[in-house]
Design a protein around this nucleic acid. Structure first.
Length: 214
DNA sequence: CACCCGATTATCT
DNA sequence: GATAATCGGGTGT
């Protein structure tokens, strides 16, 4: 079931937390055929408006960040460090001018073979961990900026679903920390990550640790 | 128009 | 762990 617009109309940090465990879905055309790529969202960050100096929207609306001021449920994709695209979803309360959730990491589920091609690596472990990696793996670029992820009529190429796979293996909790790569507003714990455990007696650990090199 | 810098990552050591 | 790669956007002249 695709997430609908009302899901994204809430406090940005609450949406960021709710997105953990959801499924990011992308259909790509490759040599004439369409393929479904997907991954479970395992890490997000919330970015606000005038009260959030770490946010692109902090200083007001510009050509680059205008998507953050748009309807909830649209994508905000920006280019960073001369190399990478980052995918956000606009989420904010009604009457709030701007706000978005950065998708920082997913666990690849469907279309791993294609993701390897797009990433030019055979290493599954860091296929989609990191905001720049997941956009490369899913072929998300600035073309997708302002794309409406909750418009199931016109946009069948990029959206977010409930994870209702029958063999749902995630019994998870969500941990929160300060956001990555910023030096300001550290007291705000607006980074969320999926925590899992391998048995009832095991402690919860970041889901990324399960498959990580030791 | 020039300058500066960043919500990153690959590729070294 | 350190550093280079790389370029669009913001800012100020």
């Amino acid at each position: 079931m695709r997430l609908e617009k009302s899901f994204f109309e809430d406090e940005t940090h609450r949406v960021a937390q709710s997105l953990i465990g959801k499924m990011l879905v992308r259909y790509v055309c490759f040599f004439g055929n369409y393929y479904r790529l997907s991954g479970i969202i395992t890490e997000t960050e919330a970015y606000g408006y005038k009260d959030d100096p770490a946010s692109h929207a902090f200083k007001g609306k510009t050509a680059r960040n205008q998507a953050m001021f748009g309807q909830v449920g649209i994508a905000y994709v920006y280019f960073i460090y001369g190399n990478h695209y980052c995918l956000n979803v606009v989420a904010k309360c009604r009457n709030e001018p701007a706000g978005a959730v950065l998708i920082r990491s997913v666990e690849p589920i469907e279309g791993i073979g294609l993701m390897k091609i797009f990433r030019r690596t055979n290493n599954v472990l860091d296929l989609t961990t990191g905001p720049g990696r997941l956009t490369q793996a899913l072929r998300i670029t600035k073309k997708h900026n302002t794309l409406d992820l909750v418009d199931n009529k016109n946009n069948k190429f990029l959206y977010i679903e409930e994870n209702d796979s029958p063999n749902k293996k995630y019994k998870f909790t969500v941990n929160r920390t300060a956001r990555i790569g910023i030096s300001i507003a550290m007291e705000r714990e607006w980074r969320y990550m999926m925590m899992v455990r391998t048995s009832l007696k095991s402690p919860f650990i970041p889901s990324s640790f399960l498959s990580r090199r030791s």
